[in-house]
Design a protein around this nucleic acid. Structure first.
Lengths: 137, 137
DNA sequence: GGAAAGCACTAACTTTTGGTTAGCGCAACC
DNA sequence: GGTTGCGCTAACCAAAAGTTAGTGCTTTCC
């Protein structure tokens, strides 16, 4: 142990070597996945799909403020990660449906728990902010 | 109802008007809070503090790869939101401890659930990525 | 019948955010 | 007496997010 109580600096082990993934490790691939999910629009898109399958523009209306580019990008990432399933019908106009995979559903449920807590506590959080700002004004 | 099944366009109501917060609404303050929490380092910092109170540089070593600037910035935001408590002792060298508030603990617990799921499913996710990439190679 | 809007995107460009480097003054370690 | 650690901040630069415009076809409105 070092002076401040952190672990002794033995050799650094990456998450893949350890056979378990650890988001706190610098180059662990699971961190990238976490960023895909929690990044700006990932959380909102995943949880919005929890209610029902949605078409591209339906989802875009649901998640207010997301640009077409970002939604498209986000959905592609989530599809690649196996969290969202995309079905395109080559009709005209095109119809593309987005749905959660079983894995995506699991993730979305846990994300929803975070969202609900945030919404419930928003007033407390705003109070905390006012206090913080007042203290150093 | 419009043709594609979305709700009729009645007047738009903001989350504060509705007396409930809704992260899907464009200007809802709860969305900002969600971004603070799920943004890049927020999740990792909050869950890292779940185990124990940590000093600035302890936390920095725990959350590998975070820069001093970003950690400092992240912690200030979380402190302002009332999720993290900061105690500074004006000794030399300074000693600053970061701990979760009760509210921060609640949030962190739910975030940890997401992290654990991601870590558990990382292999499946990587498999999905390989499949996705192979299909359009 | 002609204009406008909707569909699901992509490409090019700009702005915002995140990351990197350097520095602060002091103390303990070697 | 040079290095390291402490907890930051300021200045600068790269990467991510946002904005705008365009695609080709169809349906709806006037």
């Amino acid at each position: 142990m070092t002076a401040d109580g952190t672990a002794a600096p033995t050799r650094k082990i990456t998450c893949t070597e350890a056979l378990a993934f650890n988001v706190y490790a610098r180059d662990c691939p699971s961190r990238e996945t976490l960023f895909d999910i929690t990044g700006r629009w990932g959380t909102l898109a995943l949880t919005a799909l929890l209610e029902s399958t949605l078409r591209f523009n339906e989802l875009r209306r649901r998640v207010e403020g997301v640009s077409e580019k970002m939604l498209s990008q986000t959905l592609q990432t989530l599809e690649r990660d196996g969290l969202v399933h995309r079905t395109a019908q080559p009709t005209n106009p095109p119809r593309v449906d987005y749905a959660l995979t079983p894995m995506g559903e699991e993730v979305a449920e846990r994300l929803l728990a975070v969202i609900q807590l945030v919404q419930d506590r928003q007033r407390d959080i705003e109070a905390a902010r006012e206090k913080y700002d007042a203290e150093r004004a």
